[in-house]
Design a protein around this nucleic acid. Sequence first.
DNA 1: TCTATTATAATCATAATTAATCACATTCAG
DNA 2: CTGAATGTGATTAATTATGATTATAATAGA
Lengths: 259, 259
Amino acid sequence: MLYSEERKKKILSYIDQHGRASVQELGEAFAVSESTIRRDLSELENEKMLKRTHGGAISKQSVNFEPSVIEKADRLLIEKQAIARKAASFIQDNDTVLIDSGTTTLALIQEIKLKNSLTVVTNSVVHAELLKESNHIEVIVLGGRLRHETQALVGPLTDQGLNLIHVDKAFIGTNGVDLHDGLTTPNLTEAATKRKMIEQSSEVFLLADSSKFEKVSFANFGEIESLDYCITDEQVNEQYQIEFEQRGVKLEIVPLQED
Amino acid sequence: MLYSEERKKKILSYIDQHGRASVQELGEAFAVSESTIRRDLSELENEKMLKRTHGGAISKQSVNFEPSVIEKADRLLIEKQAIARKAASFIQDNDTVLIDSGTTTLALIQEIKLKNSLTVVTNSVVHAELLKESNHIEVIVLGGRLRHETQALVGPLTDQGLNLIHVDKAFIGTNGVDLHDGLTTPNLTEAATKRKMIEQSSEVFLLADSSKFEKVSFANFGEIESLDYCITDEQVNEQYQIEFEQRGVKLEIVPLQED
DNA sequence: TCTATTATAATCATAATTAATCACATTCAG
DNA sequence: CTGAATGTGATTAATTATGATTATAATAGA
């Protein structure tokens, strides 16, 4: 006798394999009543694992296929995509770009997939995972210790990897941007990695939505002046706009997403 | 008489091995009341080690609705899990282990999640991704170029990362094992990485189901003698069993999974 | 279109399983 | 030694999974 979870799993794989199945057919196959099968199917439909039809169900294969990593990311993308798209517009064919870990830069990864030939260096396993099927993109993962909190790779191994490379453009995320305290993030080791990233790039782009401004976190990883570009949204304080230009940082402002 | 923690571990391995178990069955097996088993199971479920059902529990591996990475892996796990479980039994608390990329070693990752404190070094973003929520495990990702075909990290950056470390145990996968041609894999760069891994470990374990035997692939990454252990299934040729022992390699044979 | 057929959701009954509770035994710290 | 904390088993009320039933809804064929 199967537990309901086991049965549901088997129903799902049956439907994925055959493309479809009828309630009757499933009831016989698993020796349970049609009521039970109907309940199973509606639960599986709620979990978005298949599509219910009259008399049975069909596989969702064609729609369903992306991993949940991407799904989770997608929600954030809605907010951060405008900034990411702007950032992507600076990337040219055959560029070598360094992409920091974090949710804002994750949005950038989605944009980057659309590019042609490109070398992408990253210290995030999530970012790398998302690029794994983009055969036209050369992906270099910096080694390091996996920080479970942020899923970033950090530490001496990362820094040592960075020593070996130099990129055209680095896209860095941050927790705080402040005129006096510069660029800050909560973790000291991660800060050291970001600092090193800035060193190893010809041009440095900071991706920071307006909520990050006038925030100061624990560990500093650079001054405003170390940036070449800062990409943010239109709610950024006007004072920052003036000050950034004075300090030689190009401030790129994107309109907010309505949605 | 078992301590509850011991019992919980045994319940877990029983369920992982059989795929499922009923409360009654477990109560009888461990000579405790069903109440106790229910408490154990709900604790294990809280720790996300298994999935509770009415009447019992089922292994997470057979139920996992996680990202498609894992789903794809799961099908292979059924075949390779026995080998992986055997391999995992060699790992002790506080060991530093190196885990190669590949599907056989991916099965090992699932087993490793059950361990307590451990440092895991890997050159696979998929492996790292699967461990990202295991806070009790220190995960070190070797850097390198992402090979889209195998999702392994390879190349000079990987080798250089390996130079910095030395581990207690390395678990290596392979495409071919042959008495004359040694250990082989289709890609030259990946072979170089495997070779380096073998160098940097005190003990080397090869994970290879019997289908890999008497196969020769393109690039050699070591001789039989460079191994300490080879873990395989019972269909392995008897000649190999004799020869391996003569060459100082301990051959560990696990029974084939039924089902 | 209309009707006959089939599938469904909603409801109920029931049997099994469970969570919640209490009582008892053991362990551990003070 | 005492008392608190923990682990366990027994008891019982609540919950869950299931199948059966039936009124309603959807589909297919004329």
